[in-house]
Design a protein around this nucleic acid. Structure first.
Lengths: 227, 227
DNA sequence: GCAACGCTTCGATTGCGATCGAAATGTTCA
DNA sequence: TGAACATTTCGATCGCAATCGAAGCGTTGC
């Protein structure tokens, strides 16, 4: 009875190394990084990092792009990000885990591949739930008619890719807040909007984002988020 | 900058062993198995299996229940199943992976923790999509009004747990068919129904299920599934 | 063409985890 | 209480993968 267990084990083994795990979680925001940057981040020498990166690329967890003499690495597909997101969720949901000391900026606001996470992500999601724009349960979610109208008023048309379908969303379990927040196409659209309108800015390194003055006002007034 | 990378690596390391991976994928159907059965399945001695199982329990991937002199192991939470499902998806989505030889029965019909998968799961999902009962995209899904009515006619009331919310569903990427199929509360309800009405039966071992004569007729006539 | 730089390949070392035999523990039933 | 059985603990062995120094490769720019 051949199963996929060997492939599962192989995949897990690729993530099981601390250095590779650091690299992968750093790339969770979808941006690309050079090999040197990743080596520095992972606390290993460039040659070791190179070996790790080549394995990750070969197994198609990462893709690489040559930019001049340097190579830029990033997650191969959103599917990989989603998988890592699920693993992180379980990783912090453990039994009597020592409370994971998480970077304050990271906890405050960050991106989770394509959508908002941290206190900001949860606050926005809570506000949308309260206003009846959204329904989320354990493993599925739905934008209400009022929600479609609301996002439409912000200039987001979530019907664009496939007009026969309504706007779709899914819940993502936040590993710092241990609360569900909005992901999926709706979540990604809101994050895009926030960057476009300069409500949030990426910090030079790390996945955390900075909430601007305008952003704080927008999230509070437009969304009703308590943040 | 403390991150969750170490915990991610530790978790992955727990899945990275072939024996443990076999055990985990065997338990993906949510049922419990004894330590001996799992040892036999994984092809290792009972003492080695015991060591693996204790690690999995300690890290809260499994929970154990004592039934007389034997111990029954099963996945600790649905969250773990969902994580493994995501990993399996990536595990078979690799680049030039040698075509994973998958057990025929397994490919035909199986359960994925709480919902239908394999050809059967995909066929039922396709039929529901065609009839406009369902909308699925990359990472979210939605039951239409017609879908709620349809499932209601089968005796399924998906509003029960929380009446303020509509019936919710999510897509699950099938690792044998490489196609999306219905999961979430709606998917689980349909699978429950199928077991209750004896449309499908669990095979003594493994996660594959047998489609009964009545089941074949039901899936074809009631759902319009081409199977 | 040559130097500078980023990255990769090679080779040798090291440490940790998987494994199983042997023995201990625990549970049920007579 | 004692026998039968499932499971766990202990101890020793073994193999593999992570690591880094040194050297090689490839690209860019002068």
């Amino acid at each position: 009875m051949p199963t996929i267990a060997p492939q599962l084990a192989e995949l897990a083994g690729l993530i099981a190394d601390p250095g590779r795990a650091r690299i992968l979680s750093r790339l969770m925001d979808g941006r690309a990084q050079t090999a040197s940057e990743l080596a520095l981040l992972a606390g290993i020498t460039p040659q070791t990092a190179s070996w790790h990166l080549s394995r990750l690329v070969q197994r198609a967890l990462l893709k690489v792009e040559r930019r001049g003499p340097r190579r830029l690495y990033q997650l191969a597909t959103p599917l990989v990000a989603q998988m890592l997101e699920g693993m992180m969720t379980v990783a912090v949901t453990g039994p009597s885990r020592p409370p994971p000391r998480i970077d304050d900026q990271m906890r405050r606001a960050r991106t989770c591949y394509d959508h908002l996470a941290g206190e900001l992500g949860v606050a926005v999601t809570d506000a949308m739930l309260e206003r009846g724009y959204l329904a989320l349960d354990q493993d599925a979610g739905e934008l209400t008619a009022a929600g479609v109208v609301f996002l439409g008023s912000l200039g987001l048309d979530l019907r664009s890719p496939a007009r026969r379908r309504r706007a779709l969303c899914r819940p993502c379990l936040d590993w710092s807040e241990r609360r569900r927040h909005l992901a999926g196409r709706a979540g990604a659209s809101i994050a895009d909007l926030a960057f476009q309108r300069d409500w949030i800015r990426r910090r030079p390194q790390g996945r955390s984002v900075e909430i601007t003055e305008a952003g704080l006002a927008a999230f509070r007034n437009l969304f009703g988020a308590r943040i």
